[in-house]
């Protein structure tokens, strides 16, 4: 009986840490899959407004993003202080939108081109003039699905 007890005590050594790397690797893969590397550094200041009726954009490969805002301070000597567009990593004007959309379209399979959404990340202080020019260009390029990016507003 006493021997039996002794044996049981011996069977409880320290917990094996051999599986710890595997657990950490699982975490690592989870983060690698769920996150995206920052693609472009923003050259314009964008603080999107708040809204309540929001739709989540799920298919990231079908979304092209247009940033609109005032150029950041270090870029103001080059681009001035009037609101500008950032398409990809370059600061552009509304006239460059058709080419940008066409370039994006080339990357998308033909069957899914009708589902492309343009996400407009526009600074709240920008006036509607430049936005109207953008909308006109989008309509002329037949890119009609747009998303005014916004933050969640607490009610």
């Amino acid at each position: 009986m006493g021997k039996f007890n002794e044996g049981k005590g011996k069977e409880m050594p320290a917990v094996s840490t051999a599986s710890l790397p595997d657990i950490i690797f699982m975490l690592l893969f989870f983060f690698m899959v769920t996150t995206v590397l920052r693609e472009n550094t923003l050259k314009v200041d964008v603080v999107t407004p708040k809204a309540t009726e929001l739709t989540k954009l799920i298919h990231k490969t079908l979304v092209n993003t247009i940033h609109v805002g005032k150029p950041k301070e270090q870029y103001q000597p080059i681009y001035g202080t009037a609101p500008m567009l950032q398409l990809g990593d370059a600061v552009k004007g509304p006239g460059d939108i058709p080419l940008f959309l066409e370039n994006f379209k080339q990357k998308v399979p033909e069957s899914k081109r009708g589902l492309i959404i343009s996400s407009l990340k526009v600074d709240g202080d920008v006036t509607m003039g430049i936005l109207q020019d953008i909308k006109t260009k989008l309509r002329q390029s037949n890119q009609l699905k747009i998303n005014y990016s916004a933050k969640t507003k607490e009610q």
Partner: peptide, 16 residues
């Protein structure tokens, strides 16, 4: 990395 979450007011523009 950042968890890229894009949401906003979805609208459809009229054809040109």
């Amino acid at each position: 990395t950042q968890i890229a979450e894009d949401k906003g007011v979805l609208t459809t523009l009229p054809p040109w």
